[in-house]
Design a protein around this nucleic acid. Structure first.
Length: 291
DNA sequence: CACTTGACCTGTCCGC
DNA sequence: TGCGGACAGGTCAAGT
């Protein structure tokens, strides 16, 4: 669920909150959520200071003064929520967190800083993970070696996108968009939204797309990602920003989870179906499948 | 090699 | 009301 815009929103939030803070203690219980040896955590995380927060694809990187970095993937239900020592927004406060008292039963890792503030890694479904790695080795992770280009990079254009997608020419365009080795950061929400924007049926085979469609898909994807970042990401079940607040993008969505409602463009009822093994939302009039 | 499906988890919702 | 099963979605491993 956290896709590129959600992870970017968390990155921006943590980038404002964490740099300069020094780690005092780390608590974790679920080994899969944080598989590092306690001795390494003691040596390279405790007493280290946060230098910078970055993002690549859907992965967050918290760079530390120890020359190690925390590499974090939120997968579907992961959250990174920061609480200052005195945070206590009452219910009804405009900045009230959606998340209650922490730690709670989905808290997998708690990082306490010297000033008493804390960073909680919550993950209901335990698919997400956090790893402590030498910063220099991050680029050597299989994931980083294989992951595709950032769709919002200044030098990424529709021709690059066409070329990348054609690596999966015999599969559906939706499956190709979701493939992180093709393009980084696109997940189910933004794949559906971009395909609606470009008037392409998600099951269309990549090799069946015209240049005009590739160009339109690029424009639609970039537009939807930018809009969502501007809105603080999606308002979805588990996603919250670094301060535990919802985003508002989903209220701007045109098809995602809008089955049964009218297509904003033509009024046809939006349907939900299954493409590439995923729940897929589309307008049967605007996005016709032609083989 | 290209492509598809299942596993990893927990919580929620739907039908009987 | 209780209960089983489908579903949610990111990624990797295993299967075709």
């Amino acid at each position: 669920m956290p896709e590129l815009p959600e992870v970017e929103t968390v990155k921006i939030g943590l980038g404002r909150l964490l740099p300069g803070r020094r780690v005092k203690a780390v608590d974790f219980d679920w080994p899969k959520s944080f598989p590092n040896a306690p001795a390494d955590v003691e040596r390279f995380l405790v007493d280290a200071e946060v230098v910078e927060v970055a993002r690549r694809a859907k992965v967050l990187l918290i760079e530390l003064s120890s020359k190690y970095s925390l590499v974090i993937h939120l997968k579907m239900t992961g959250q990174l929520v920061f609480r200052s020592a005195e945070t206590s927004f009452g219910a009804g406060h405009p900045n009230a967190s959606l998340v209650g008292d922490l730690p709670d039963k989905s808290t997998r890792v708690t990082i306490t800083f010297e000033d008493g503030s804390k960073l909680f890694f919550n993950d209901q479904r335990k698919f997400g993970w956090m790893r402590l790695l030498p910063t220099a080795e991050v680029v050597n992770l299989d994931f980083f070696k294989k992951v595709g280009p950032e769709p919002l990079a200044a030098d990424f254009n529709w021709r690059d996108m066409k070329q990348r997608l054609l690596r999966r020419k015999n599969t559906s365009v939706k499956a190709a968009l979701l493939d992180q080795t093709v393009i980084a950061g696109v997940g189910n929400i933004y794949a559906d939204e971009a395909l609606w924007g470009a008037k392409i049926h998600p099951a269309t085979l990549v090799h069946g797309l015209s240049d005009a469609k590739f160009h339109g898909l690029y424009d639609a994807l970039v537009a939807v990602l930018r809009l969502s970042i501007e809105k603080g990401g999606s308002t979805d079940r588990n996603y919250v920003d670094a301060e535990g607040r919802r985003g508002s993008y989903l209220s701007f969505a045109n098809v995602f989870r809008r089955q049964g409602q009218a297509c904003p463009r033509c009024g046809t009822v939006i349907v939900k179906t299954r493409v590439a093994g995923r729940g897929t939302h589309l307008c049967p009039h605007c996005q016709r499948l032609k083989i």
